[in-house]
Design a protein around this nucleic acid. Sequence first.
DNA 1: GTCGTCC
DNA 2: GGACGACAACGCAGA
DNA 3: TCTGCG
Length: 506
Amino acid sequence: GKRKNSTYEAGKRSTAWLKVKATNSADFVIGGYTKGKGARAPLGALLLGYWQGNKLRYASHVGSGFDDRSIKRTKALLEPLQRKTNPFAEEPELNAPTSWVEPKLVAEVQFQGWTDDHHLRAPVFLRLRDDIDAKEVRHKVEKEKPSRSLSEVEQILDQLKTDRAALTLAVGAHQVRLTHLDRVYWPADPALKQPALTKRDLLRYFAQVSPFILPHLADRPLTMIRMPDGIHGQRFFQKHWEQERPDFVQTITVFSAHKDEQHAYLLCNNLPTLLWLAQSGTLEFHVWHSRAKPGPDTAGKGTDYASSLAALESSVLNYPDYVVFDIDPYIYSGKEAPGAEPELNTVAFEKAKEVAFWLRELLQGMSLEPIVKTSGKTGLHVFVPIRRTLDFDAARQVSEIVGRHLMRRHPKDITLEWSVPKRTGKIFMDYNMNVRGKTLNVAYSPRGAPGAPVSMPLTWEELANAHPLDFRLANAAERLARTGDRWGDVLKRKQSLEKVLERAKP
DNA sequence: GTCGTCC
DNA sequence: GGACGACAACGCAGA
DNA sequence: TCTGCG
Ligand SMILES: [Mn+2]
Ligand SMILES: [Mn+2]
């Protein structure tokens, strides 16, 4: 039967999923230590930091990874270094009695990346570094490498090598039933130099890019665009999954004003879910711009999304992570059927790029630094990451005002018209995408379009010479291995919009 | 891709 | 057992 | 208030 209570329990994450995260190790300066309980009475945790100029930036507590010997030795070395004052530039949050020490001792720590508020995720003490001068410990962390996830991904690729059209895939501790692996999803397209791509190819792609796409999907309500018979078959949107689903699939319940009902949305929060959705014929993953996850930028916002409209509106889901500029060319190729949407063409995309660069210039004039990706279809997505202090309404106002400003400068090239015919020949800036519940194709999601293009985050330098079909299912994994995620730090680049909003006021 | 319904 | 439909849905803009 | 829109 259907699962009634599908709420995900953080404590029950499988080890398989934990492995997907990148692992780093780095050296940090010890600036204090805490008392613990029982056997850990002498030393509960270390307070770690690194030098930035002459400021010691706090990075994290670390309490895991010690044994009796390392506790004894570390404590002995720290005791003589005690001081009365906090050596860090910040006031770290203290959860136990804390002793400050002169920042002279260095510890090597393994961790799973950085949290949004610049602390270490899941830090584990490895050893003391007597050989390193504490003054040399700057903020130089080795680039995150998905080394540990590689083996997991390769295990999946191995399993997909079979000739069989169906199999039960082991994804860590979980199992995903796969069928119709040789079904053609993207037929061969000689004009685009595109060999046929099957469902097996789609699964291979998702396995390979999973370390890059999963962070962009995490905690965001999902709309699936499903094409179980391939890109030329019937396609449909799906926002809710009422059928039975595996245990590893997380959902959230969201209030629906219209039906006076509660709706379950899927969250694609782990690798088995990603592959299970591919098995269901989901070719495109469209996600909200807000997340069902509180953070350091959401003080006072709730996590009750279900009980009432008021609760939803005051929850974190009403506060987007970015202001969205959806850049849609309405310059037609001339080959479209009457009434059809504009098809991809070079003239249109070159103009969209020009608009994106104008937009960047304007935003930079407001001290805002936007990021850009191809949508995969015909246009571009330009995002300004913001702290989650503005609701969708405010984000939409910003997008509209900036859009109108740009339209005034370039009236022949930009439109904000609601009527489709009036957009003809121009680039449409769709500021109304900044609304709760609206979705866009997520970074690295494929499109159900000829050539199997994917939405690709780019540097602005790369955009200058880019074309949507440069980035495809067939070559994106290779690019990512080379360049990493150009949007890897979206959630760490949050900016303030106060000035823009002041100007917006009448 | 899968389920429910109708014949 | 085969055919067929469902699988979204909401608030904003403009008239 | 109705309709087109994504
Ligand atoms: Mn678009
Ligand atoms: Mn659009």
